[in-house]
Amino acid sequence: MAAAVQSSTNLFRRLAWSATVPLHIRLADAGGPVDHYFIQAPRYTYLALLLPTIREHLVELVLDDDALARTSESEWWFELDATDSPFGSDAVRWHWPLDLVDLCACMLRPASATESGPEPLRLILHLTGAPADKLAVPPTLEAVKTHFVSQVKEADFVRWGNTRRVTGLRRTDLEAGWDGVATGDYDLHQRMAGRIVPLPIPSSPPTSPQPDRDRDKVDSAYAARSLPIKVYLPDGAAAIQAPVAPLTDGRPTTLLQYLEATLPLLFENGYRAAQPIAQGILLPPDADVAWLAACMASADGWLRIGIRLVAE
């Protein structure tokens, strides 16, 4: 059973890892002929990892040598382009995975019958005036990596009430988690993630506490005490993060059950008022949340769901 689940889980994790976002970056306050840059980037990556490319192919082409010598990446920041949105724009946080940046952009525009299909993620790059207190994490790889590892640990604590699975990793396996993201290497990343993100093994006995001596047993996402899920709403609302039980009355908790319980006013009529998006796709209402958390999580182990409102 575990082997079959392992192989199907790997397939879906690999699919999520292969998902990309088309980016359209515009330089703020620049009127030259080359102030736009297009790039296709993986969803699991971070903007800080893309800065060298963006610097070379956009900023260095636009600025003259003096301006280039004066600019400092610590002052740079990205803003979501909120043109045509009923909501205001926002500064992109450096510790957000690109998937979350895209999720925020997606939530800016309500779903409607007249929409013309997927659009690139439009960002505005500002070279001065970074709102430091809002950004919280500076655009250095060291800071983003530290944050990534903290998120990995927090997700583990959510699942099991301790971080022993992470702290028990060999140093090289823990490092492989971030290194896999930085180098775009799925197998390297799995040396960490494959050891700590549990498989969605349905037959696992529910809720019985697992004593520590059973550590060799394969963990099931359905046996976790809670699932690491963050739900995002548009218009500057704070993220929602609360305990999520993988099972309800002994049966797998479905996504719609979870959404009805968490956001009843938006999901009392199914998806008519709002739609849940993760990894760039609309999630089916009958999906098990434990399966989604095991197969569609970000590289740090968190499942990030964005709520897109539906227009009339």
């Binding site: 045509d84 949105s85 009923p86 525009r109 309500p110 938006l266 409102l309 539906v310 227009a311 009339e312």
Partner: peptide, 11 residues
């Protein structure tokens, strides 16, 4: 731009 229903915005 498509309008969001008032009840949704209230929620």
């Amino acid at each position: 731009p498509p309008a969001i229903p008032a009840a949704t915005l209230a929620a």
